[in-house]
């Protein structure tokens, strides 16, 4: 199967190792992976700020770069959710490629569990790890059950992490509270954003996390900023890196 690799703009610029780990994981499990060089961004930063009307350019670019693939995989829940909910063309061809893309785009974790149906990982990560349930992936893409609902529990990221040798997953006091990144919220409402991030970090540290992981690097970038300001030894690591790790 031919997989188009979609790398979020901030991962491309600041966390290339997440993209590399994603690529390596997909190839390990038999995918033919192509990274279209002309990609930029899903358009979410503008759309969430009320400027969805400015995303025509990013939409067309996305369609142009990704319409040919069997699947599109991205190591970011919020970017995938944005494409699924909002991608559209101003002048759609027939059949509309945007509709096709919305159906075949997957966040990395759900691609591994639902499409590749992985039941075994050759990975080692001998550390105490706290899982941060990023909101858009969890409540939007249903990567794991949310605590608000009276419904059976499940967690796709946990399912994969448990396959990693040596890993010790810690329990948090608040399982799925938002970290406070929220896109431009992180600077527009800086005080609340940071307070939310500090509280999330405190929950992980209080429960012994040596690493904080998750499926969204934006959340982790925000938590990392706080951890480093606190000069903490705890680090962040995207789930793609852990699932691909030999440490």
């Amino acid at each position: 199967m031919k997989v188009g690799l979609f790398i979020p703009c901030y991962v491309d610029q600041f966390y290339p190792q997440v993209g590399i780990a994603t690529l390596q994981l997909l190839e390990k499990y038999g995918c033919e992976v192509v990274y279209p060089a002309g990609q930029t961004c899903c358009g979410q930063p503008m759309a969430n700020s009320g400027f969805e009307h400015l995303t025509k350019g990013t939409n067309e670019l996305f369609i142009k770069n990704f319409q040919e693939f069997d699947y599109i995989v991205c190591p970011s829940g919020s970017c995938v959710l944005h494409i699924k909910d909002h991608l559209h063309s101003e002048h759609p061809a027939s059949p509309d490629p945007a509709v096709g893309i919305r159906k075949k785009i997957y966040e990395l974790v759900e691609f591994l569990t639902d499409i590749l149906k992985i039941d075994h990982l050759e990975a080692k990560f001998r550390h105490k790890v706290g899982l941060h349930q990023a909101c858009h992936g969890q409540r939007g893409l249903k990567l794991s059950q949310m605590s608000e609902l009276v419904a059976p529990p499940f967690s796709k990221p946990e399912h994969l992490l448990k396959m990693v040798q040596g890993i010790e997953l810690i329990e948090l006091d608040r399982k799925d509270e938002c970290c406070g990144f929220g896109g431009t919220f992180c600077v527009a409402e800086e005080a609340v954003s940071v307070k939310m991030g500090k509280d999330r970090v405190a929950d992980h540290l209080h429960n012994g996390a040596e690493y904080i992981t998750g499926a969204d690097m934006s959340c982790l970038m925000h938590l990392e900023g706080i951890l480093q300001r606190q000069k903490s030894k705890t680090r962040v690591k995207h789930i793609a890196e852990i699932l691909n790790s030999q440490e």
Binding site: F14, P16, G19, Y35, M221
Partner: peptide, 15 residues
């Protein structure tokens, strides 16, 4: 109240 992310030498695209 936060450190900026470390800028890598290459972007993913460049790699």
């Amino acid at each position: 109240q936060r450190e900026m992310p470390e800028p890598p030498a290459s972007s993913f695209g460049e790699w």
